[in-house]
Write a protein that binds this DNA or RNA. Sequence first.
DNA 1: ATGCTCACG
DNA 2: ACGTACGTGAGCATG
Length: 886
Amino acid sequence: MAKKLLLIDGNSIVFRAFFAMHNQIDRFTNQDGLHTAAIYGFKLMLDHVLDKFTPDAALVAFDAGKVTFRTKKYADYKGGRAKTPSELTEQLPYVRQLVADCGMHSYELKNYEADDIIGTVAKMADDAGYETLVVTGDRDLTQLATDHTTVAVTKKGVTQTEHFTPAHMQEKLGVTPTQFIDVKALMGDSSDNYPGVTKIGEKTALKLIQEYGSLDQMYEQIDQMKASKRKENLINEEAIARKCQDLARIRRDAPVSVKLDQLTYKGPQEEKLVDLYTQLNFKSFLSKMNLAPDEADGGKEKDVEFTTLTAANLDDLKNSGQELAFYLEMPEANYHLSPFAGFAIGNGKQWWASRDAELLKQQPLKDILSDPKIKKDTFDGKAQYVGLHRMGVDFKGLNFDLLLASYLLNTFDNSNDLGQVAAEHDYHAVQPDEDVYGKGKKRELPKDDHVFLNHLVQKARAIWNLQDPLKKQLEDNEQLPLYVDIERPLSTVLAKMEIAGVRVNADTLKNMGSKLKERLAELEQQIYNEAGEEFNINSTKQLGTILFEKLKLPVIKKTKTGYSTSVEVLQKLQGQSPIIDDILNYRQIAKIQSTYITGLLKVIHSSDQKIHTRYLQTLTQTGRLSSVDPNLQNIPVRLEEGKRIRQAFVPSHPGWQIFSSDYSQIELRVLAHVTHDHNLQQDFIDGKDIHASTARRIFKLLPDEKVTPNMRRQAKAVNFGIVYGISDYGLSQNIHVTRKQAHAFIQSYFKEFPGVKKYVHDIVEVARKKGYVETLTHRRRYLPDIHSKNFSRRSFAERTAMNTPIQGSAADIIKIAMINMDEALRTHHLQAKMLLQIHDELIFEAPAEEIPVLEKLVPHIMDSAVKLEVPLKVDSKVGDTWYDLK
DNA sequence: ATGCTCACG
DNA sequence: ACGTACGTGAGCATG
């Protein structure tokens, strides 16, 4: 196999690391006030690339100084650059030290830049038959890509890179690596202070080089170019282009003195690294070294002491204390059905584990788990509750839930894998399941008892050890009440809803299915007739070919892989060919058939004729729930044909009914609350039709003028837009008006609702300053992209800053209502069961005689969940099936 | 695994 | 100029 060489553009990566972590600059200083963020980022990159690439040889190239052959030749080169901040320069010596301690060579060469060293060594490596990876933060280096040299350019942060091969460049830019030099010649590089030809940016430069093949060939044929301002510029500024070409070309023949065989990668020198990390105060890297599974040990977890439980020694647990970490392993994601693989339990001093989950049904284990006075610490308490319930054990005394706590601290830490979550908190003694069990087809629990049980004990220990630091962080964030009073009790409420399940009549679905099957067959034939051939209608690719090539219909929109055939596009084509209506119909019915008929039939449990969904409590970035296996939060309702699916959702006992209550306009009411906007609040206090009164205000209607349905529709879209974090473009797309008109609507809205305008401005400021936004209950969402240089990412973060407190606070409110509702059903001794939550709606089943009670109780619980500056409104419906609610 | 499409709030 | 409405999950085709 070819030898692998790693070449790192040292200065450019350090720069990237420094600026990538710039918003956290104060978090990274050592005892002496030395800034360390760039060193830290550099090391992150190093670990990442060493893990992925595993080189045989490595070299980190650095710039030697300010003076190079380029600056000598062209005085302005890199002129006007801001001075490198001292916070960065002070870190450079440590980076070099780090490189050395990691067992890698570094090199610099007087008069040359790091680029030229890399270009030259990469050429040597190509000639010697190496596979080379260049890592850089500078896109200019993509000109070095060859069949054996790949150039990885950092994209976001320092560990995410884009790999440029000649093929990738051809696909993305349409030029070869060598041609890219000429592209740079035309477009220039403002950061290096060479501007290129006037009025030519990347797009035009690419086009010209694609067309002519090279800079030289373009100038040879320039007379034939049709007259234009651009042609004039090209002719007048040929000297500039030639100069830029010279500057942009990385040298491949620099007088480097190193030989490839001197670059062998030796691997890290642990002792030296420990010293350096100590000096730099890199606790996480240190703890990784001390705790992490030893690579030399085949990646096995460190052994911990534990006792294997059997029926004979169960009594050991009798005096195990008032607080225990407990973890029941269910290897399949769907814990309603997963087998039980084993469990671990312990109190910080002693640990026990077993493969035999049957032991959980026996004393004293059963008593410990169902004793509310003995605190239990675990991971994903909801899953544990459901699993134990399946064994007839009532899980009580939930104290610390590692998964929930981690999610509240940072919504990105939502992995369902304990090892990964622990690693997010710098705890590395437990491996991710993937590393222990394998993945995909090869996934299998370890046959070796010790390996498996040791892993479970490590999980329980991680839970135990992370409790204090995580609770401390929750407290620091003012999130302890959110955890203790909302999310933790909610997990149990959700577990009970999942266990209750919802009865679905399979025969009803099957009957619908056979009717739909006939209609699909008819439509299919009709479409084949109209197309003149048979094809797979479900394939967007084949459908695109038929519509836009064979039938020559106009192309409305393209996706990155071909023609778009979305509803939006098809609707614009309606009337141009009868095939369009048939396709729309086909799509609608096919969706119902596959997702809702066959899809739901597959997940009805044969034991009780019910569907038991799972709510994901730690997934969404806003605090909403989501629902999987199946998703019961997107059962059709908007169109009659789909809505009929709801006829199959029925009560589980004769004489019972389905009952539902939903919040009316909860997000706009939350908006009125958080913005304190007087007009918006007044409209809600007066009980107005909010979209109509918004229309009245933004269209400046006189008291005797009527709101037309179209005005109301547009005002409704504006209201939605405000909640989503408005942009004129988005609004214009939604209501099919020009961007200008949309802009005018927004201006008019802000004038009428100045409180909202102020909020929109202020919340983005808050996000910029703190790095996160919060809901009513201090639920947090971090928005690192708020500082992004990329317009699109930054804009997205800004819209998110506006939307998250609204959507998230609405989620908070219904969660509080659910906890209170669960309690109220108990205290009122009702048989009614809460079954589903659909973001602003709660669905129950209940005996008919309890319906009058629910009609009072549920709205009361829901509208009094929190006290806002505007009233909350709740509407209720009841019926014999979910479809029949009235 | 990824993209497209479409179901919901 | 950039390129978007916010939050989700599932089925299907395709590489």
